[in-house]
Design a protein around this nucleic acid. Structure first.
Length: 128
RNA sequence: ACGGCAGGAGACUCUAUCGCUGCAAUUUUUUGCAGAGGAAAGUCCGGGCAACGCAGAGCGCCAUACUUCCUAACGGGAAGGUGCCCGUUUCUUUGAAACGGGUAACAGCAAGUGCCACAGAAAAUUACCGUCCGCCAAAAGCGUGAUAAGGGUGAAAACGUGAGGUAAGAGCUUACGGGUGUUGCUGGCGACAGCAGCAUGGGGUAAACCUUAUGGGUUGAAAGGUCAAAUAUGUCUGGGUUUGAGGAUUGCUCGUCCGAUCCAGGCGGGUAGACCGAUAGAUCCGUACAGUGAUGUGCGGACCAGAUCAAUGAUAGAGCCCCUUAUGGGUGACAGAAUCCGGCUUAUACUCCUGUUGUUACC
RNA sequence: GGUCCAUUCGUCUAGGGGUUAGGACGUCAGGUUUUCAUCCUGGUAACAGGGGUUCGAAUCCCCUAUGGACUA
């Protein structure tokens, strides 16, 4: 249940173009969350991506560290969201874009991402 | 003992749980193994590899620059030569020699051209003051006159000192010293060194244009190849004839080719995406031999990341280290593979080693 | 990933070895005006950082930092 395989990640030019062209977004600082609901198919219900702009984090070490922290928190907390979408026979693309100029600790990131997941469930529920 | 500087080596370890990427086995969900660096960085050089120029040649452009060697190659490295700087010792007190260390874009301004601000007479066929000669009885003054010793300027001033010589002077001559070029001999593979002879007086600047020698065809894996939904409808290969408007071809020129038509043959091109390129190699470890050394050769052993919106992580505990200190708290630098190798440069907490230097204490 | 370029007052720029680095806008002070604007006078303020070549470097060369362009 706490897996995070290749099939659960957002890959390819087309998927990213679709998400950023027609997706909606909100901000839970320090993350901006972009998401797009779709009809369910055989693939996993939620596809996830994280993006750290080079403009904000100069060094590759810091960008890697943040991406790994974000993915780790997502891996541990995504279960509620997957239940929510499979129950309504939908799927969803989600991207997290980092907005802060400094590193955040694991504990802060975990609290913020939990908030973001709850907000995402609330936002998408209005359409079902 | 402590501190500074320079160089070199290492650059956190282990356990548990939950995950990620690749490979192998098992077989259809499990198991096992492996999983960032000394700089992976900057992209400053050199190569492997690949495509292109439908043959190629020249010019241009770029790079390098003491010698010999190493290397696949290099602008890298090793050993040496020369100049400069520093230290020690000896002779001696002007200085010289030996040893050790550091340093050098160290070919050529004695090939040509350019530039050398201000100051100064003059910045390179010198002439303001001065000295001498001539005109004039003399002085003052004048001169297609001679000269460059003395003066001050400047970053830099036309070999230095003594003697002779001269109207006055001057390498004009000569002795000594030192510079440059060149010839011969000796030593060295060579750069070069030593000795002897001859010539010469020649400012600096090539990280100014340039000359000489050597090297480089151009472009880089987003190169390039295979399969191939969608979409659009032509295009390629070989041979012959004719002709050259326009075009293509590496920065330019020459050259070459495309063009028109006839004959024969073929079906291809290609976006999203997938795969190859792409991870076994100028590889690593140990050892013996050759060599002053860089390095090479032989033997034995090992397999050591391979992703593609991009893996190598998170949590907890223990140890190591630091600060306060019996508790407790904190830190672990620089930094993250992207086609692969060899270098260079830059960044680097802490620990250890070597050299050098300073302070304090003791003998 | 690769290939190039740039960095000069607060801003835009000139200068390509030789005075005190020039100009415009801005800003500050004074003057003009009853006051403000305009105008006039004067001031302030810069060669990205480090090293080298040279008598002398903003300029030439090397390293570093920052910013930008092109290439799918």
């Amino acid at each position: 249940m706490f897996t995070f395989k290749k099939s659960e990640r957002l890959c390819g030019t087309k998927q990213f173009a679709e998400l950023f062209a027609s997706g909606r977004s909100f901000v839970v600082f320090p993350y901006r969350i972009v998401f797009l609901e779709k009809e369910a198919d055989n693939n996993p219900a939620v596809l996830f991506a994280v993006s750290i702009p080079r403009r904000r984090m100069k060094r590759a070490v810091d960008r890697n560290k943040l991406k790994r922290r974000t993915r780790e928190v997502w891996r541990k907390n995504k279960a509620d969201l997957i239940d929510h979408f499979t129950k309504h026979h939908k799927k969803c693309y989600v991207a997290f874009i980092y907005l802060e100029n400094d590193l955040v600790s694991y504990q802060v990131a975990e609290r913020k991402i939990k908030d973001a997941i709850n907000r995402l469930i609330k936002e998408t529920s209005e359409y079902f």
